[in-house]
Design a protein around this nucleic acid. Structure first.
Lengths: 121, 121
DNA sequence: AATATACTGAGGTAAATACCTAAGTATTGG
DNA sequence: CCAATACTTAGGTATTTACCTCAGTATATT
């Protein structure tokens, strides 16, 4: 209900989904495990005390935002990682943190200036 | 009421909140603007077509997970950034992406091996 | 063919999100 | 003091999330 024109910056809506996907420990754990080895649904589900359909919802969220991809062979569905989306998120964070640190440095400077009796802007 | 012993890995619960906070374009935008300049509630709220109480909820989420901090002087509450939490998220993503890329390289190798007629593990 | 395996789908509950309006409470300026 | 300003609180709705159970359906396996 609130799309917006996408310019030079990363697609906003995509990032929503990615960060949302990362906001759950089970899903982060699944990603971590997939980064070591592709795996079937039941292999992935095994460690968690959760009914299969509940777990499947997590996998669907990961797949919907493009962080993983799956294919079915016989009765087994195998999940694997995708590369780009995570990079999107990381880029945003990196850019952000740089601004951040600059900002905090400015605060330091400001405080120092005050201490030296200077007149801050 | 639920801190947890911090070991080598980042506190899981904290990351939930941080990623959840980042999963909304308004909140990401607020962070971006705060990284340029601390600001009052109404300054922050101004660009968005949203009732004040709705917007306040976003600020509270950012504050609850520690990404920002606020203080009140007279009737004006001013918000500013905090440094550490974002780093937490970025570290996780970075670590993750490295595994990720390694994994994707392995896949490449695997495919090459197959093409060369080698017998993959 | 019968049973087990590996998912899938339908549907249901509780809590959290993302908005809203309407009515407060402090502060400040005239 | 009175009104405007800057938030705050209370409460309400629609949607989404995170679980669940209880069926299915489509492949193996025996």
């Amino acid at each position: 209900m609130h799309q917006q024109a996408i310019g030079a910056t990363p697609p906003l809506v995509a990032m929503d989904g990615i960060f949302k996907a990362l906001a759950d420990p089970t899903r982060r754990d699944v990603l971590e495990r997939l980064s070591r080895k592709s795996a079937s649904v039941s292999e992935l589900a095994e460690p968690y005390r959760m009914a299969m359909p509940s777990f499947l919802q997590h996998l669907k969220m990961l797949e919907n935002c493009g962080l993983v991809r799956s294919s079915k062979a016989g009765r087994v569905r195998t999940y694997e990682l995708t590369a780009e989306p995570l990079k999107l998120a990381e880029d945003w964070l990196g850019r952000q943190r740089r601004l951040w640190e600059r900002r905090l440095d400015q605060l330091d400077d400001y405080l120092l200036t005050m201490k030296d009796g200077g007149d801050p802007p």
